[in-house]
Write a protein that binds this DNA or RNA. Structure first.
Length: 575
RNA sequence: CUGCCCGUAGCUCAACUGGAUAGAGCAACGGCCUUCUAAGCCGUAGGUUAGGGGUUCGAUUCCCUUCGGGCAGGCCA
């Protein structure tokens, strides 16, 4: 039935009307109205079209409206101000949309042309334990992957873990000592501590440092014994990551891991290829690609180093090899790099080289999905009281602890088992939602109090809205699950309208890679539901009205559950 | 020096290819529970969108400039 989202539908109709009055190609500019008196949607394109053709905008708007076919869709079309077209949707149309969504497992979300999208996210350094610096990439990337997948794209998650580099020589050298001492299992239990002790040995013991350097060479040379140790270390580290993913409700699996080391065989090939194309040249002993579009301090073309003086490769080379893999093997149409905004320049340069070298065809979209840093409530980078990095596992444990205290306060009589389940969903949900609900471009202030205040635009508010509906259905007993939806009250119409906007919210998230659009949508939906809930008794109403309201409740619940699920946040039947 | 990001209510944040009177939450104040979970709803108050120019029917949004904050810029990632 619906192959377009609401905005797409209105846009195409207004565009057709514009074309019918001689304004082919003029953008309709349909968007949600800013205020209730301007209807549900407004088309702003007439003013621009009139200007371009030196016409009177009001006059043109009148002509467009005369040709505008919204039969069965709109109940009111008005011209206002200098040439706005305000559209109010018909209750019967919205009711039909609700019924259509209810009948569809995908809630009526239309499928766009499918793309294969590679989402590169989380990508922790396996030498150390995951810390708060990995949180944003992990949950933003996971949310984007889920949304893109739901919308209908073929998503390939890539966990570009740091599993290569000189530090692994030190770690494997230390591991062999631990194995000889028979306490490797214990030593590896705390990766952070393991790293610290290895580093200490490295700094204090010259013989160990020398051995560590030899191990790097052995590792790179494919030495079997060192390789086994290295693999063992990676396995332990990945298990730790997986425990964090499990706790976070992040869908990354072992098969999504494709670390830096996976590209080793292609690094020399990439450099040779860049040289052959005349892109890479020697400079100060290193192999570099000069990029005119980026200037260095002297105003000269900036050098993008692909091979060091000593012959070693860098992440720049690895990333180029990864582009080749993602194009040639994964057949990607679009690649998203969910990485710290501080690496913005690196990605611009890397994308530029990829294009010039022909690794990235013009049809491939390469996007750096950057994000700001996490700040403490003092506005400074988020650290422990003593100034250390905060382990992700510890942060999540604290979230559950704090949520548990709040749940216990609200529900002292609830069994402990249930309180734990709720604390987990609420605590983890609060941490994730607090992050996802903000524009990822800016730094954000991490505040336990505001994310767990359970008021406003927070995960608990949305989870609570869901439990209210769950409660209604627990008490509903008999009702007609196929009853028609009838929108009598304004609160019902507003709720239906909010429900009908779900597809547009998802499309904008998929297009702009902005998870906070979905959060804003869900908050709006939950707010509309709360208003409906206050204004329109469900169980105490009767007959067709009761049945219709239950259907609205059902779709609201499913939309909240699906939407929160796409953010990686669980819902609860009770809280 | 150059480039990128940011600056919106006391605080945390929105504002969808430039749209109408810049919106929420917290904090403050005032209402609403013998009726489906009050972790809720309704209302009041709070703004020179850092400052100044420009583009136009219209600018938080685009351009220039100043100030302030963050980050990046040849062998870490």
């Amino acid at each position: 039935m619906t192959q377009q989202t609401l905005i797409e539908l209105l846009d195409s109709r207004v565009s057709a009307a514009l074309a019918a009055v001689g304004c082919e190609g003029a953008p309709a500019v349909v968007q949600v109205s800013g205020r209730p008196e301007y209807g549900d949607y407004q088309a702003n394109g007439v003013m621009g079209a009139a200007k371009a053709r030196k016409m009177n905008p009001r006059q043109l708007a009148t002509e467009v409206v005369a040709k505008l076919n919204l039969e069965g869709i709109a109940s009111k079309i008005e011209i206002a101000g200098p040439g706005f077209i305000n559209i109010t949707l018909a209750p019967a149309y919205l009711a039909a949309q609700v019924q259509h969504a209810l009948a569809d497992s995908r809630l009526g979300v239309p499928q766009p042309a499918m793309q294969r999208v590679v989402v590169d996210y989380s990508s922790p350094n396996l030498a150390k334990e995951m810390h708060v610096g990995h949180l944003r990439s992990t949950i933003i990337g996971d949310a984007l992957a889920r949304v893109l997948r739901f919308v209908g794209h073929d998503v390939i998650a890539q966990n570009h873990v740091g599993d290569w580099g000189t530090q692994f020589g030190m770690l494997t050298a230390f591991l062999i000592e631990a194995e000889q001492g028979g306490d490797s299992h214990v030593a590896l239990a705390d990766l952070e501590d393991f790293y610290r002790r290895a580093k200490q040995r490295f700094d204090e013991d010259e013989a160990f440092a020398t051995r560590a350097r030899e191990y790097v060479v052995k590792l790179q040379g494919g030495d079997a014994q060192v390789n086994v140790l290295w693999q063992k270390f990676l396995d332990v580290s990945l298990h730790h990551c997986e425990a964090v993913y499990e706790k976070l409700g992040v869908g990354l699996k072992r098969e999504d891991v494709r670390g830096e080391s996976a590209y080793n065989p292609d690094l020399a090939v990439v450099v040779k290829n860049l040289q052959a194309q005349g892109l890479a040249v020697e400079s100060e002993g290193a192999q570099v690609v000069f990029l005119d579009e980026f200037k260095n301090k002297e105003g000269q073309a900036q050098a993008y180093i692909v091979q060091k003086q000593d012959g070693g490769y860098l992440y720049s080379t690895t990333d180029l090899a990864a582009v080749r893999y993602r194009v040639a093997t994964l057949k990607a149409d679009r690649v998203l790099y969910v990485v710290d905004a501080r690496q913005s320049l690196h990605f611009q340069q890397m994308f530029s080289v990829s294009r010039k070298a022909g690794y990235a065809p013009a049809t491939l979209s390469l996007e750096h999905v950057g994000f700001g840093v996490m700040l403490g409530e003092d506005g400074k980078p988020f650290k422990t009281r003593s100034g250390g990095t905060v382990k992700l596992a510890e942060l999540l444990a604290e979230a559950e602890l704090r949520a548990h205290a709040l749940v216990s306060e609200k529900n002292p009589d609830m069994p402990e088992v249930e309180r734990r389940v709720i604390a987990r969903a609420v605590g983890i949900g609060a941490v994730k939602y607090a992050d996802l609900s903000k524009n990822r471009n800016s730094d954000y202030v991490f505040s336990w109090d505001s994310m767990l205040s359970f008021e406003g635009n927070t995960a608990p508010y949305l989870q609570y809205a869901y439990t209210r509906i769950a409660s209604v259905f627990r008490r509903a007993e008999g009702f007609d699950a196929t009853a028609p939806v009838v929108l009598g009250e304004e609160a019902e119409r507003q709720l239906a309208l909010a429900l009908a906007r779900f597809a547009d919210a998802l499309q904008s998230v998929a297009r702009e890679t902005m998870p906070h659009f979905l959060c804003a949508y869900l908050y709006e939906l939950a707010g509309q539901f709360m208003r409906f809930y206050e204004a329109c008794p469900v169980l105490k109403s009767e007959g067709a009205v009761r049945a219709s309201r239950l259907r609205l409740c059902e779709l609201t619940a499913r939309t909240l559950k699906t939407g929160l699920g796409l953010l990686g946040i669980e819902v609860l039947e009770q809280m």
